[in-house]
Design a protein around this nucleic acid. Sequence first.
DNA 1: TATGAATGAGTTTTCATTCAT
DNA 2: AATGAATGAAAACTCATTCAT
Lengths: 204, 204, 204, 204
Amino acid sequence: MARITKSPDERKAELMAIAEQLFIEKGYDHTSPSDIIRKAGIAQGTFYYYFASKDDLARAIIDRYLDRVSEYVSRVANDQTPDAPHKLLMISDALIDLSKKKMGLVGGASIDRSLGGRAEYVNQIKAKLLSVVQQIVRQGVAEGQFNTDYPDETAEILFFVSLYLNRELRNTRDPVERKKKIAASRVLMERTLGTQEGMFRSSL
Amino acid sequence: MARITKSPDERKAELMAIAEQLFIEKGYDHTSPSDIIRKAGIAQGTFYYYFASKDDLARAIIDRYLDRVSEYVSRVANDQTPDAPHKLLMISDALIDLSKKKMGLVGGASIDRSLGGRAEYVNQIKAKLLSVVQQIVRQGVAEGQFNTDYPDETAEILFFVSLYLNRELRNTRDPVERKKKIAASRVLMERTLGTQEGMFRSSL
Amino acid sequence: MARITKSPDERKAELMAIAEQLFIEKGYDHTSPSDIIRKAGIAQGTFYYYFASKDDLARAIIDRYLDRVSEYVSRVANDQTPDAPHKLLMISDALIDLSKKKMGLVGGASIDRSLGGRAEYVNQIKAKLLSVVQQIVRQGVAEGQFNTDYPDETAEILFFVSLYLNRELRNTRDPVERKKKIAASRVLMERTLGTQEGMFRSSL
Amino acid sequence: MARITKSPDERKAELMAIAEQLFIEKGYDHTSPSDIIRKAGIAQGTFYYYFASKDDLARAIIDRYLDRVSEYVSRVANDQTPDAPHKLLMISDALIDLSKKKMGLVGGASIDRSLGGRAEYVNQIKAKLLSVVQQIVRQGVAEGQFNTDYPDETAEILFFVSLYLNRELRNTRDPVERKKKIAASRVLMERTLGTQEGMFRSSL
DNA sequence: TATGAATGAGTTTTCATTCAT
DNA sequence: AATGAATGAAAACTCATTCAT
């Protein structure tokens, strides 16, 4: 086949994009390097020139997410806006936003399902995000805006609900349905945290 | 090798138990028939004497769940206890109970992760349970015991939270941690449904 | 399953009949002992009580043919009718007759196809029949009723044509087609052997 | 093991040649991919790099025949030589020729025996050749050079005799035997078609 | 005579990875 | 940087046969 040379970064990004799509569509285990290679129109060996293994490719994709998520998180954490409810809202909105951009791998079960043995690795992302959420909830309780006896556990559940919502929204096209799902989850957050009603109605 | 003959029911149950454990531990795709065979100490052909394929085994395991879950659900649905909160509590307790009995596959992501192409099949179980939960929530709203503008969506989230809790509890040994997680989820349910405080404190 | 006892001869005959049918339908290699066992409604072990192996069963079926064919042959060979054309006609008619009785295994390729490694064994039948035909042709030449420079080779081809015809007739239902095929083969025999026209018009 | 790289065409041809030989020797069903692989001295995966399955390999071998046979047939059909006897002779010679080149699969039963479920496919080749032969015989009758009341049936038998001869010759080394067999079949053709004696003495 | 659970060597196939060019 | 033929271990499954009851 004709030898098509591209800049390494371009090739690498292209392979990651193709791989990510296939991982989401068919799952990590049912996507073979050959599938990716075929779609990319490259030779068998070229794949291994860029990635040491299929696992290495997965790690690269996750790392990219980790970076993006870290960025979101630090933006929220370092934000001047002082109170917990707004911070929580921002994180929640960020996750919904990610779902719009089809950043498929982040989000509940799908991230696990996609990346076979790399679950521990993936959990880093979750743990990182979760600890931020827990910190926010604790802050909210301390500042008297949230009211709960189990801040860490509640934060965990709410975080999980957000991931769930993120996944649901990726599969829901109907705008009315989307609004209802978002509204229901916001009410749940407000009531669960004992916050002022309407505090979490975002503009999404 | 020495020939160990067992009754078909016994052998079949034994193989399903071993398989289920391995599916949970390593995932469906990373569990080979040979893994199961090795653990069971049988010959290659014996496995296929009982199950036509690896997929057939998966189906058998799921079917068993479907039966058990259906039993739970109909027990709750047909129960004399009249009000929605108690029914909801019973379903929730039932799911926690299942987790104690190590009925591993029921429960959020793990059920999906474990069973390759059988996702649609698994979703039947979820859909069945979910519709029961939605019905209960609607009943509660109608009877004035629950208060929510989005009964179906709320039911869906609460159901998902229950599955999440079920999974978490399977991985949590510390009794203090377990109590906290259960308590947090109960408070979440109560507040989300606008029910009387303490309504959902089960004895679990 | 209920234990159904039959006389050994009956069982054996039943199994041979079922096996023969399956061998013809699906071929020897694609018929498993389990196929036969299933159709017979017996247990796995029962099959091996009657036949030492699948091969042994094949041998038994062929032996039965060998006997039947031998009978036909000796009937023809010892027949009082003196001249070669009539003898040849009788053998040919006999083969056509066998085809009517659906004695499937005799007949050209099918006998080979059906019985995997037993080809040599099967060839005994052919060789036996062929030698009789060759003898008849030689007799016919000696008595001046046939005219050919290559009696043995001609006999071989004619014998093969008969087997071919036998096979064709088993697959031909239409009576007009059947008559044409038989007629064409008879003319071929007559002309090839330089016999009087009409000598071989049998009543079939 | 030492890695021996060959051009795809070479490897493919090599595998097909080895496979064909084994199919003829042991039969299709009793030849495993592993047999072919062992003889070729390659790795398990190399076989499947070239052929998607054992069946695919069979198809490839047959296709090659179909091409070769088609070539022969169209060469004869389009030949300037006008009369039917010569055309028939050419086809017959062509089949004998194929047998010399060890083009083993063409020829009666062996082609069926070798290729499991592919019988229908194989029959296409036969049907194609047969229709050409029938056409030639009809032409010969129309032009007054052949004399038969059953042109199609006679053509069918003669065609089958040719295939039989093709197979016999592949197993006959002795030149005297070969000549006799060819001569006998030629006389049979001449007499059967009521042609002038000596018309079909080819130089083979 | 008959049962049917159990065997195990073999077959067909997959796929992540390597390496000579 | 890129190629693509080749590798080999392991996965999934088959089936003729055995054996304790």
